[in-house]
């Protein structure tokens, strides 16, 4: 049986793991919202500060699941496939890059290297030293069917885990939903509730949509 063993939401209003709210943005803070989460989780990863918001969201999501859903994630280095999606690719960073050359004709290389949406998967791979498959797709809205079948296909061919999710971030809106899916030996009790005490959720299209909708619509 495949389960979503941990998941994380970050919106403009809150940060939650397995549905439970961990933190809400402090209006008095001198730091960005993502930086507040980084400080709260006590993550030590200086590269984080150079990343764009998409990549930061990816690193936060994986670290929050590791820390607060208590998943060790000690997979083999080729055992994890990554699959992320959003609607506007890297548009927010693209706009920043465009501004860097529109003003002074001095385009910023440090921004340019983030003008691809799949950089989020690259940053997670670097953080965790994972050599598995990485995919980024663009779709109009979170499609639980797409993710469910991707997870099933990749776990069927031997993956130890699939990490993925929806990461749409722009000036107006932060929609981050990141999950960890793992094959878990089937429980002996057939009438298991959808959500067990440890927060793990049986994988299914409906179930994935339900947990996505806990903090996003």
């Amino acid at each position: 049986m495949i389960k979503i063993t941990g998941y994380c939401h970050i919106t403009d209003l809150l940060c939650a793991v397995n549905g439970k709210i961990l933190l809400q943005p402090s209006p008095d803070s001198e730091h960005s919202w993502f930086r507040q989460i980084y400080n709260f989780a006590d993550i030590q990863y200086p590269k984080f500060h150079k990343m764009d918001a998409l990549a930061q969201a990816g690193v936060l999501g994986v670290e929050l699941i590791r820390l607060f859903a208590a998943r060790p994630m000690d997979f083999q280095d080729e055992g994890v496939d990554l699959v992320f999606a959003n609607r506007y690719a890297s548009a927010a960073t693209d706009r920043r890059f465009q501004a860097s050359y529109a003003d002074h004709m001095s385009p910023s290389p440090a921004i340019f290297v983030y003008t691809l949406p799949n950089i989020i998967t690259g940053e997670i791979a670097i953080l965790k030293k994972w050599y598995g498959e990485n995919t980024f797709v663009v779709m109009p809205e979170f499609d639980p069917g797409f993710f469910t079948s991707y997870i099933q296909r990749h776990i069927a061919r031997g993956c130890e885990a699939v990490i993925g999710g929806w990461v749409q971030i722009d000036e107006e809106n932060t929609e981050v939903f990141i999950f960890l899916a793992e094959p878990i030996p089937a429980e002996p009790i057939p009438a298991e509730p959808i959500q067990a005490d440890d927060g793990a959720v049986r994988l299914g299209v409906r179930e994935l949509l339900e947990i996505y909708q806990q903090h996003l619509s």
Partner: peptide
């Protein structure tokens, strides 16, 4: 075939 990330550097 397959793909594999270098897990090394983004650029």
């Amino acid at each position: 075939g397959y793909s594999s990330n270098d897990a090394n550097h983004i650029s």
